[in-house]
Write a protein that binds this DNA or RNA. Structure first.
Length: 891
RNA sequence: GCCUGGGUGGUGGAACCGGUAGACACAAGGGACUUAAAAUCCCUUGGUGCUUAGCACCGUGCGGGUUCGAUUCCCGCCCCAGGCACCA
């Protein structure tokens, strides 16, 4: 259906070209000339803008700067509707701010490293570089066809050595400062992509790119120490009022700060202790056993020589083999194994069996958890399963006085036997969740401590501090903070990325590449491997390198950097993309940074937006820039969906921007993207909606060309004359519309309502012209209205507006035209509409002089005949008057 | 489970520091122009009812509350979308 249907239904402006050969349509040549034909005018203005370089900017201290940026695209082949929407929103803001007089930087470039290039090249027998640069050329031409106002002189692709050389320099500087380091650890490995992934790139245990299950693998990897800035990253989320709340909350959750205590539990054997992080120190008296992660370094020691040693090690091995998604997604049944060792509860002195448990994560806290079954549901279930003691030590505030019940805990497996000393186990007290006096699940809230020695009777919050302080005197505790955020693993075992500038030497170990040897250029003459693995480890000219320290033959690092490294600083490079004496020209970066408005998809809420915030802090501390945060204001636009789903090839609901532009022109596509919904919401693509946008532009076009002579000879309205009726109303509407459009764009980026207001104004102009008032002021007022329509529409639909404006005889470009101001005088009406309610229900409407007093309004409404029916025979108890708006009569 | 949004006509959406619910558009129906079609223009369009030039009642997920007045504020639910998820 698609292309053919398209050219038939939407391609109206093709008719003129076809008509020459057909010979029967162009009977009315004059009428055809008046038709809106976007194809020719859009090309004309794009060429004009391009040749004149009108969007190129420099630093100008006299003007206020405004740096507007949209997330740059990955050159995947062709732009999709999501790009069109994102960049259209950005372009409107850029053009609007320019007209308001700001010195606007609006650049574009390419996030050009990454795996799709490799996969596509393997498939096509091509090279990632060729694939990438071909795509860039094509996509650049697509962006130009949409008329976006970029300063193309600043364009760059991140796969260019002139870009990534500076990234390599940053790596070296970060290495010097300990912000880049190498360590061996369990990392996320995607077997399909043959590479390691950062935590942020694992979604529900699966690879963010290919959706394969991610496994844990122990490897030597390079990390960026994002945790060095964890507190600043968190605190600044409270100082970014220009960001959407939900993005900030997502980042806060991702950082995952929790305050608590670090506690030490001495081993019964006397050989050391187990460290534990807990936020619930107040429940310490109820800690009856210990759970540790299978990867915990003490596991081997704890079970050594015990009867269950081999069984424990088998269990550990089994858990390690399980997939990350299964293990983390709470799918696996909670299982544990007693190691055979005990540690001692430092406040009760009681023995606590140490279990290896599959749900304990080595990566959070210390990899060991004190288990308090009465006050943690997971521990409760675990204790029931393995017959471990459950001791209640917190009661709900306000509950009845305590009564003791005999315990019934069985601890056979742990070696604890019941007896007179057996603690109260599994028994509920007043106010606890439970049935017939038996605890059915853990009581997890804060409350009042019981059976907790000297701390009994304290409130949880105070007890947390008090118990920690008491233990601190014995060297067994300290107050501490834990974060969920972990360092950013940046090594990728892939070819198409920026090489990490490191050489390994048998004698000297890790040797950074000297700065003067940068860039370490990614070799182009490689054979890609079928399985997707990197060819670099088998490419001798690359990996063979002399050790910079001793000169002996070393081996170059063959991993490349995560592509998110490139996008973590590109916004600063736009300020000085031609600078070749360093990564960033301080003066120019100082002028432009930070980005005043950043626009992009919500999918980067954590990934790119968190990495960039980290990078800017690191660059600041290394002396490259002076800002703390990269993006002052953030707008996250919604997805483009069709038929209820995100556009995707598999759903078969993709709409190609090229075909849309061919059929309707760029202005129509832009207009529809802006009009169909506010930017932060999802946009539902509708063929008919696009038709409607085209219809509106045609209407605007005809408004000018069908009245061209009258409009031109009218000259602008200069004020002074007294206007009446329709004409006065039109002038008022013109200025109301200017105000509404200005505020809708400036205050909240609600282009949909701005466009609706312009449509209303156009409708009114037509209406006034239809009524043909023989008033000498008709054409001057209409002309003022038409000019306003053209100027305030121009950020959204720039091509048609330039054309219409030049048709009216203007010579300067619209983008150099100041944004119009509304005339407060013109907004004033002589008469206003006031609604009358009785008991809050609308009963009548009256038109009154604008200067009527509240008392007059009240009198008029009480005399209103419609109102009389409703108040007749009733007593008027009260009359509420909202000045110039509404009267409510209460009877 | 926790955290964020969000539930308004046939559809996209508007109004929301409480004050005319449904702007603007799409779709649908009717009409004008035309040999015809396209394009364009005009009218109707939340629901129900009636004594049908009009009027009344109901209506913003559900149930309460505050108020002269609630789509908007408060309390309690339901549903949808997104994020995090054994975090100790």
């Amino acid at each position: 259906m698609f292309p053919r249907e398209m050219s038939r239904r939407g391609g109206r402006f093709h008719e003129k070209e076809f008509s020459g050969s057909d010979g029967h349509i162009d009977t009315d040549e004059k009428y055809m000339e008046q038709r809106y034909n976007p194809r020719s005018i859009e090309k004309k203005w794009q060429q004009f803008w391009d040749e004149a370089g009108v969007f190129e900017v420099g630093e100008d201290e006299k003007r206020e700067k405004y740096y507007l940026l949209e997330m740059f695209p990955y050159p995947s082949g062709r732009i999709h509707m999501g790009h069109v929407r994102n960049y259209t929103i950005g372009d409107v803001v850029a053009r609007f701010m320019r007209m308001l007089g700001y010195n606007v930087l609006h650049p574009m470039g390419w996030d050009a490293f990454g795996m799709p290039a490799e996969n596509a090249a393997i498939k096509a027998g091509s090279h990632p570089a060729k694939w990438t640069y071909d795509n860039i050329d094509y996509m650049r031409s697509q962006l130009k066809q949409l008329g976006f106002s970029y300063d193309w002189s600043r364009e760059f692709a991140t796969c260019d050595p002139s870009y990534y050389r500076w990234e390599q320099l940053f790596f070296l500087k970060m290495y010097e400062r300990g912000l880049a380091y190498r360590k061996s650890s369990y990392v996320n490995w995607c077997p399909k992509c043959q590479t390691v992934l950062a935590n942020e790139q694992v979604e529900a245990g699966a690879c963010w790119r290919c959706d394969s299950a991610v496994v844990q693998k122990e490897m030597e990897q390079w990390f960026f120490k994002i945790t060095h800035y964890v507190e600043e990253l968190l605190q600044n989320t409270f100082k970014l009022p220009g960001w959407p709340e939900r993005v900030l909350v997502m980042q806060q959750n991702w950082i995952g700060k929790s305050t608590g205590s670090m506690l030490r539990f001495p081993l019964e054997s006397g050989r050391g202790d187990i460290g534990v992080f807990t936020t619930r120190t107040d429940t310490l008296f109820g800690a009856t056993f210990m759970s540790i992660a299978p990867e915990h370094p003490m596991v081997a020691d704890l079970c050594r020589g015990k009867p269950q040693e081999s069984a424990v090690l088998d269990f550990v091995e089994k858990v390690k083999q399980s997939k990350r998604n299964e293990r983390e997604a709470d799918l696996l049944e909670k299982e544990g194994f007693f190691t055979g060792s005990y540690c001692i509860n430092p406040v009760t002195g009681k023995k606590m069996p140490v279990y290896v448990a599959n749900f304990v994560l080595m990566a959070y806290g210390t990899g060991a958890v004190m288990a308090v079954p009465a006050h943690d549901q997971r521990d409760f279930e675990f204790a029931q399963k393995y017959g471990l003691p459950i001791e209640v030590v917190i009661k709900p505030a306000g509950a009845c006085p305590l009564r003791a019940y005999p315990g019934a805990g069985s601890s056979a497996e742990a070696g604890l036997t019941g007896g007179p000393e057996t603690p109260l186990a599994g028994v509920a007290r007043d106010g606890f969740p439970g049935d017939k006096g038996v605890l059915t699940h853990a009581f997890e809230e804060d409350g009042i401590l019981v059976d907790s020695g000297e701390f009994s009777g304290m409130e949880s919050a105070a007890a947390r501090i008090a118990i920690t302080e008491a233990l601190a005197k014995r060297g067994l505790a300290e107050l501490t903070v834990q974060y969920r955020l972990r360092d950013w693993g940046i090594s990728r075992q892939r070819y198409w990325g920026a090489p990490i500038p490191i050489i390994y030497c048998d004698r000297c170990g890790v040797a950074p590449v000297p700065e003067q040897d940068l860039p370490v250029v990614l070799p182009i003459d490689v054979e890609l491997l079928e399985n997707g693995g990197s060819p670099l480890p088998v490419h001798k000219p690359f990996y063979s390198a002399a050790c910079p320290k001793c000169g002996a033959e070393g081996r170059r690092e063959t991993d490349t950097m995560d592509t998110f490294v490139e996008s973590s600083w590109y916004f600063a490079r736009y300020a000085c993309s031609d600078f070749d004496r360093g990564p960033l020209d301080r003066a120019r970066v100082g002028y432009w940074m930070p980005v005043d408005q950043y626009i992009g998809g919500i999918e980067h809420a954590v990934l790119h937006l968190l990495y960039s915030r980290f990078f800017v802090k690191a660059l600041r501390d290394m002396g490259y820039m002076d800002v703390d945060e990269p993006f002052l204001n953030l707008l996250t636009q919604g997805m483009v969906i069709k038929d209820g789903f995100k556009m995707s090839k598999s759903k078969g609901n993709v709409v190609d921007p090229d075909e849309m532009i061919q059929a309707y022109g760029a202005d129509t596509v832009r207009l529809f993207c802006l009009f169909a919904s506010p930017p932060e919401k999802d946009l539902d693509w509708s063929e008919q909606g696009v038709e409607g946008s085209f219809r509106f532009l045609s209407r605007m076009w005809r408004l000018v060309f069908e009245n061209l002579e009258a409009l031109k000879s009218a000259g602008p309205y200069r004020g002074g004359s007294f206007l009446t009726g329709d004409i006065a109303q039109l002038r008022r509407k013109t200025h109301q519309t200017i105000r509404k459009v200005t505020e809708d764009i400036r205050e909240r980026f609600h282009f949909n309502t701005a466009i609706a207001a312009i449509m209303e104004l156009v409708n009114l102009i037509y209406q006034v012209l239809d009524s043909r008032p023989s008033d000498p002021m008709l054409w001057p007022v209409v002309r003022e209205a038409v000019e306003a329509v053209i100027v305030i529409s121009s950020p959204m639909v720039p091509h048609i507006c330039e054309e219409l404006r030049s048709a009216l005889g203007f010579e300067e470009l619209l983008l150099n035209t100041p944004w119009p101001k509304w005339d407060d005088q013109a907004l004033k009406a002589e008469e206003i509409l006031v609604v009358i309610q009785v008991n809050g229900k609308l009963r009548s409407k009256i038109t009154v002089p604008a200067d009527a007093t509240d008392k007059e309004l009240e009198d008029i409404s009480l005399r209103d005949p419609r109102i009389a029916d409703f108040i007749e025979g009733k007593q008027v108890r009260k009359v509420v008057v909202v000045p110039k708006k509404l009267i409510n009569i209460v009877v």
